[in-house]
Design a protein around this nucleic acid. Structure first.
Length: 266
DNA sequence: ATGCCTGCGGTTCGCAGA
């Protein structure tokens, strides 16, 4: 079973690339962030034509997340991160998905998130980011009590460690690499989660984002900010994890590339 | 020190991104 996540930076302007990527890599579950459209404007039919079932939590203009699944979604459990009724940003969707027939039953729980960027530091945007991370910690702590295979995936907007940036010093004053940001991410992982890509790829130079500006891609000035975090019950089945770096060379690319994990049947 | 790109809204520039 393959589960993938991609900050697509506008699903409508990136639809052809998204469909090509799905055809080429065939994930059982694909999570998108920054779809930048309402539920009504999401091009669900194009994905359904490839055999996917679709759950969307969008909004006008920016943010927005979606889950695609080859198997019908059992339950779209949550839309919007719990813990603040006043938060109107569409940054979180959670669903329960049956595992493939070849896995002899059972389900996985998918939490797909687009964590706030938080720049510039010292503003209410950074405070919102840290508050959002505290809310996520609370919610995930509850989910872990279910003792299910749980996948928390998406654009975390967190550079966890210096090895996760080509030039760490360039991010010293950025919300993605602040001590408070990194500490909140460590606390989340320390609930008992596994960072799938880092577990499978301890080497440096593994990035998921290259800015459009200043030739970041050509200079490999990348950062690793898109992650798959797994509960123990999910990690038990981990066979591999990787990054579809090739999409960054496409025409009209997203500035992020997909991240995926492959799971054993038992 | 600043902007470099890009998508989107709603009009041709501002906002958000990271």
């Amino acid at each position: 079973m393959k589960i993938a996540t991609w900050n697509i930076n506008g699903v409508r302007s990136r639809l052809d690339g998204a469909l090509a990527w799905l055809r080429e890599t065939g994930p059982d579950v694909a999570c998108f962030q920054e779809i930048k459209c309402t539920d009504e404007a999401f091009p669900a039919e194009a994905f359904e034509a490839l055999g996917y079932n679709v759950a969307v939590h969008g909004q006008k203009g920016f943010n927005g997340v979606a889950i695609l699944s080859k198997r019908p979604l059992d339950e779209v459990a949550v839309k919007g991160l719990p813990g603040d009724e006043a938060d109107t940003h569409s940054r979180y969707i959670e669903a329960v998905v049956p595992r493939p027939e070849s896995h002899n039953g059972g389900v996985v729980r998918i939490a797909n998130l687009y964590l706030p960027n938080g720049n510039p530091i010292g503003t209410d945007k950074f405070a919102y980011k840290l508050a959002w991370m505290r809310r996520l910690q609370e919610h995930v702590a509850g989910l872990l009590q279910l003792e299910e295979p749980l996948f928390i995936v998406g654009d975390f907007n967190v550079i966890p460690e210096p090895v996760d940036a080509k030039n760490p010093q360039a991010w010293a004053n950025d919300a993605l690499f602040q001590p408070e940001t990194r500490a909140a991410f460590r606390s989340l992982v320390n609930l008992g989660l596994t960072d799938a890509v880092r577990a499978c790829h301890p080497e440096p130079g593994v990035y998921t984002f290259w800015d459009y500006q200043a030739g970041a891609w050509q200079k490999d000035h990348g950062i690793r900010i898109d992650h798959v975090l797994m509960s123990p019950q999910a990690t038990d089945r981990l066979q591999g994890a990787g990054i579809d770096k090739f999409t960054r060379s496409w025409e009209k690319p997203s500035d992020h590339v997909p991240v995926w994990v492959e799971l054993a049947a038992a």
